[in-house]
Nucleic acid binder design. Structure first.
Length: 751
DNA sequence: CTCATTAACGTTTTT
DNA sequence: CGTTAATGAG
């Protein structure tokens, strides 16, 4: 351990050995943050400053937590982290809440609902309240409620502050939604953060016990914590004041889900005695990569002043790809990976391809597949969001938590057993009328007006559930899942279907089964169904990386946070994609931080890429390269062919000047041919007509016609007026609304 | 009640 | 474009 401490630089050492009192570690990208956290925990345990169960470490992902635990064990030996609470806010507090659920009127086996479950309930509630979804979308309502919860605004206070019609309605939905959750003995993700606060407020003894117990509190990625997380960590740390937060304001990328950057910026106001460590030496990236990243982030006004430096080698220049469309962009990425594998003997797992939105993965997947490169996509259609998985999870939830009727009704007819919508409605109605639970009705169907056919189906279902419930109290999660699959014949049914889709589902169920097996094998102390279920509810597919085969990583920049790769491609660097919302200046800085995060993931080689055209909503749209590309340090960026960017830029400006004049000479007269400016047509063909040549004599534009504009996107012509140079069109654009354009400059493309 | 076809909808980003 | 929810025929 002592020799290991020697491997830290002075500032890292200070961060590790400053054990008592508030501590803020500002950890620049690649500055060995994970190492510092793991060493700090190891140091606390090794020096006997506390026992592992007196430490609470909160991370951003389960994967990060798991890695840290492993690293500590490799430092201190197997079993050394026993009792240590390390995990996400969500999983740690879910665990805490299970221990005290009855104090806040929940059952300890409460279900955890994900965003989809929440949205479904919100939709139902809105229907019940007679709220038209075209006025406010369920999505919007969900995000408003979630935002409120993130800020620890409960329904009562939300109602007080609701001033307009919409927020009044949302407040009704909010109240009702929470009632539904409670009725189902379920919590959503946000509840896992705010229920502990309520628990602590109403039961100071519970808070007290945890304050005593957790002498040391560590929070990673503090820049991305929200109000609720802030409050609860402050509560927990109040007694010992040994709170250590680690973060980097330059990497704050979750404000959209309520993350509050002032938590980290204001840490010293909350804890005036706080020690501050700044980790500014980067051990990850080449000097070139860092130079580019620093140049970009410098454009943000709101940031703590700091400079990240490195003693690493200069490395290769950053390469910028320009492609015609996203398919060719993907092709370039795939070919580059293939070449690097051949020329440098690199493995698939050394490459990562990033994008702004999940939808962009498709073209990349196609290209990688075409070139026989194994890849793994994170996010997108998450494993846990697939129908078959959600169905099986719903079964498990209901087995564990009989109050969870949302899950019950999801699976009552899965696989189809003759209990259709009509029957389900009937059961719901009977239950509601008699103030009984739906499962009670299902269990005693004879007492109600139910057809014999349905009774038999309900009995089958009931016996199945009771059998599995019985099992779940004795056997491991794996056994229960296996039995569930056997009894429902889900696997056989899919095999019989034998379509490609059924086969994928079959594979997914098998995969789920092996997840259950892994869990049961690796958690001998508690491999119960309910433990497994909690694990499942809070995992993302990031947590289940296939490490057996070397694969190229495809993910959004958001999921890339905290990771690093030898070779990184950042794709889709176009306006309105990355940054996604260039008009919104408040979001722009966050987009830039996101770009910064992307850049700083790269260790050796960095490729940036944009396409001039891109299909979106099934339509080919013209793209403009991202403004962020103008912020690069151009002295170290080259094009595909190896030309330095600043050299190319000089040529380009010359050429574009020439192009502009030639446009005036040729294209314009051809468009406005009646104009006195008309000059004889030259024979010289233009490779890239600015205006559709077919429209030469007539501008081809008509009222009602759909047109495309470079900046504004697609729109419909509302009116045309004037002639010649003064000819104008009033166009309604889908994205930006009504605009009046001078046709001479607008370059409208008829569709 | 089930399955198939059709219409509508949507893209941020995730625990 | 691709996916999911809603509708109608069997």
């Amino acid at each position: 351990m002592n020799t290991l401490l020697d491997k830290l630089n002075p500032e890292q050492k200070k961060a590790v050995t400053t054990t008592h009192g508030p501590l803020m570690i500002i950890a620049g990208a690649g500055s060995g943050k994970t190492r510092v956290i793991t060493y700090r925990i190891a140091y606390l345990i090794h020096r006997n400053l506390c026992s592992p169960e007196q430490i609470l470490a909160l991370t951003f992902t389960n994967k990060a937590a798991q890695e840290m635990r492993e690293r500590i064990e490799s430092l201190l030996g197997e079993g050394s982290t026993r009792g240590l609470w390390i995990g996400t806010f969500h999983s740690n507090f879910a665990r805490l809440l299970r221990n005290h659920a009855s104090k806040i009127d929940f059952d300890s086996n409460f279900s955890i609902y994900d965003a989809d479950d929440s949205k479904k309930i919100i939709k139902e509630v809105m229907a019940e309240l007679g709220l038209a979804t075209d006025l406010i979308s369920p999505n919007a309502v969900h995000s408003m409620i979630s935002q409120a919860k993130n800020k620890f605004v409960l329904p009562a206070r939300f109602a007080e502050t609701a001033s307009d019609f919409v927020s009044e309605k949302v407040s009704e939905v909010y109240l009702k939604y929470d009632e539904v959750l409670r009725k189902n003995n379920a919590m959503d993700f946000d509840d896992l953060l705010i229920k502990p606060i309520q628990l602590f407020n109403y039961h100071p003894d519970v808070l007290n016990a945890y304050q005593e117990r957790f002498q040391f509190l560590m929070i990673d990625e503090y820049q991305d914590t929200n109000r609720a997380q802030y409050v609860v960590s402050k509560q927990m740390a109040a007694r010992h004041q040994n709170i250590c937060v680690v973060g980097d304001d330059a990497q704050s990328i979750y404000s959209w889900r309520g993350a509050d950057i002032t938590n980290i910026l204001g840490f010293r106001k909350d804890y005036p005695s706080a020690t501050v460590c700044r980790l500014q030496q980067n051990y990850r990236s080449t000097r070139t990569i860092l130079q580019v990243a620093n140049a970009v982030i410098r454009n943000n006004k709101n940031q703590l002043e700091k400079t990240i430096f490195t003693e690493n080698e200069v490395g290769d220049p950053v390469v910028l790809f320009e492609s015609q469309d996203e398919r060719r962009e993907a092709e370039k990425v795939a070919l580059t990976i293939r070449d690097l594998k051949l020329s440098r003997g690199m493995g698939n797992d050394q490459f990562a391809v990033f994008y702004r939105t999940n939808a962009q993965s498709r073209a990349l997947e196609d290209a990688l597949r075409y070139h026989g490169l194994a890849y793994q996509v994170f996010g997108s259609v998450s494993f846990y969001k697939r129908k078959e998985i959600k169905d099986i999870v719903a079964y498990l939830r209901f087995i564990v938590n009989q109050l969870d009727e949302e899950s019950l009704f999801r699976i009552l007819n899965v696989p189809t057993r003759g209990i259709g919508d009509v029957s389900i409605k009937k059961i719901k109605a009977i239950a509601e009328e008699g103030h009984r639970s739906a499962f009670e009705i299902i269990s005693q169907p004879l007492q109600h007006d139910i057809s014999p056919r349905l009774i038999s189906a309900l009995n089958d279902f009931r016996f199945l559930i009771e059998h599995l419930q019985d099992m779940s109290s004795k056997e491991s999660a794996y056994e229960v899942v296996a039995e569930l699959l056997r009894k429902t014949r889900m696997l056989e049914l899919l095999k019989e279907e034998n379509t490609t889709e059924a086969n994928t589902r079959y594979d997914n169920l098998q995969e789920f089964l092996s997840l259950a097996r892994d869990f049961s094998d690796h958690n001998p102390e508690d491999n119960s169904l309910s433990a497994f279920l909690q694990n499942v509810s809070l995992s993302t597919d990031q947590d289940n990386v296939d490490e057996n085969e070397s694969k190229v990583t495809l993910m959004t920049v958001h999921s890339a946070k905290g990771l690093e790769f030898p070779v990184v491609f950042v794709t889709g660097l176009e306006e309105k994609l990355f940054p996604l919302n260039p008009e919104d200046s408040s979001e722009l800085e966050e987009e830039r931080r996101l770009f910064y995060v992307a850049l700083t993931r790269a260790e050796k080689k960095l490729y940036l890429s944009y396409a001039k055209n891109r299909y979106r909503f099934g339509q080919l749209l013209v793209s403009i390269k991202s403004r962020f590309l103008d912020e690069l340090d151009e002295s170290v960026v080259v094009t595909e062919s190896g030309v330095k960017l600043w050299e190319k830029r000089e040529k380009e400006t010359e050429r574009s000047r020439y192009d502009y004049s030639s446009y005036q000479d040729e294209a314009q007269p051809s468009v406005f041919s009646k104009s006195w400016r008309s000059k004889p047509k030259t024979a010289k063909p233009k490779s890239k007509p600015v205006v559709n040549a077919n429209d030469a004599m007539d501008d081809g534009l008509r009222i009602g016609m759909k047109v495309q504009h470079k900046l504004f996107g697609t729109g419909k012509i509302l009116a045309l007026q004037g002639s010649g140079d003064a000819r104008k069109a009033k166009v309604f654009f889908e994205r930006v609304g009504e605009k009046t354009l001078v046709l001479k400059f607008a370059n409208l493309l008829p569709l």
